[in-house]
Design a protein around this nucleic acid. Structure first.
Lengths: 245, 245
DNA sequence: AATTGGGGTTGACGGTTCGTCAAAAAATAA
DNA sequence: TTATTTTTTGACGAACCGTCAACCCCAATT
């Protein structure tokens, strides 16, 4: 028994090592520069051993995406726990997203790779399922807040408009900004959008205003709430971010 | 001279043929199934000849993306020409985007592939530049409408908020929806978002409402405007779409 | 201490694909 | 017709993926 669990632990540690090494390679040399041979050399195991852990290269990238998605869900969950009005809690989602992107821009980039259809095709069904589930976890957190808002009377949705509509809009807006930020990089800044994350925040506010979610951004100092959120809900992350700058 | 131009014409025709064949292969077999050998066989030229037209595979995909982006800009330009209030013209952008995605979903998918950093790296600087320029062409059309709206007094932007903010928000929202639609496909429908394009429209309206762009969606029947836009500005496209369904 | 059995590890190998380049073919000029 | 230039071709080297027979290690047994 004891032998077995030690073995299992060793195997898990090695999976972690492979992923760590792979992420580094992905950062340094890009997706096309990530080869199984290089992973083998860098991890100091043979190629065959790598293949005992992951069926193919895509599985490795997918596993990295799972790690990323797990981190994001965790941040979103925390963001939703903020004590305040429902709209303030929803702002917590926005702050969580921003923290996520600023802390792990490269993780998000790697995650994007797995969105290419030709790569998803080669990923095992379970992992693909897992990935999808994590993704929707974020939306679910947001939707729950929307429902709370409706119950609290701070938001009223017209007939036939399900609460998912709101989270869907926010999700897509945020996702769009992130994607463009990550894939265009510099050009975005050069072409009149110097602070995309600030713009995102502004647009998120206006979208919620459009829904009529009270208190409206004109009636409340959400910039101050944002500062408080960062300090109270994401203190370590804030420190990390400031440590870099 | 005449000989030269005939040669040039032949070369251009062949480039077109290669692209046509490549797009078909891309559709049928996905990105990983698109190989230079297959392109050679399908186009009935040798591999060497293909390489005289395109430096590498990525260049071919990028050229396809350029075609796509050109189509989109054209649709956006047309959408902006609608005779109506500034907000109705902005709705024209939204309709153009919808028409684009519904007519050429696979083109958009192919375009997405070029967003992977490792692919952009291998694309020639000129083509990458061209791609970027076409992309921003769409935003520019939208920004011009925003400026018209401000001048017409139908939209007032707070101090320090440039008109690009509005187009940026719309762009990202739309882009996010498209990306999720194309990369998630079915799952999106299965998870509570049966009609993403309808939801997008709704969110676009609310975002503009949030900006205070009059007439607000509560005061105006934009669904009717949308129908008119389709009929008056995109008649052939509408016919094509209906012909499919 | 020597033997044996089996799970774990390895890297050489077959199969693909990319991109090149010397040779062949075609077009043009003499 | 012959010489010269241009274009086309596909065989080839290099890089990579994923496999598998051989090898190694170690723990249980004699």
């Amino acid at each position: 028994m004891a032998t077995l669990t030690r073995k299992q632990r060793e195997i898990r540690d090695r999976s972690d090592l492979i992923l760590r090494v792979s992420r580094e390679l992905l950062l340094e040399r890009g997706y096309l520069g990530l080869t199984m041979d290089r992973i083998a050399v860098a991890s100091e195991y043979s190629k065959g051993t790598i293949y005992q852990h992951f069926r193919n290269k895509e599985e490795i990238v997918a596993a990295l995406a799972v790690q990323t998605a797990e981190k994001r869900v965790e941040l979103f969950r925390r963001g939703g726990t903020f004590l305040g009005s429902t709209r303030e809690r929803m702002l917590g989602m926005g702050v969580a997203a921003e923290v996520f992107l600023r802390l792990y821009p490269d993780h998000f980039k790697a995650e994007q790779i797995t969105r290419a259809a030709s790569i998803r095709e080669k990923i095992s069904a379970e992992r693909a399922q897992h990935l999808l589930q994590l993704e929707h976890g974020c939306v679910d957190v947001a939707t729950a807040i929307v429902q709370d808002a409706v119950q609290a009377g701070e938001l009223s949705l017209p007939e036939g408009v399900p609460p998912e509509t709101v989270s869907f809009g926010l999700w897509c807006l945020t996702y769009g900004v992130f994607t463009l930020l990550v894939t265009e990089g510099r050009p975005l800044a050069e072409l009149g959008f110097p602070e995309p994350l600030r713009l995102l925040e502004h647009n998120q506010n206006l979208l919620l205003d459009g829904h009529g979610w009270t208190p409206l951004s004109a009636d409340h100092d959400y910039a101050a709430v944002r500062t408080r959120l960062l300090a109270e809900v994401f203190p370590e992350e804030l420190a990390q971010l400031e440590g870099r700058a």
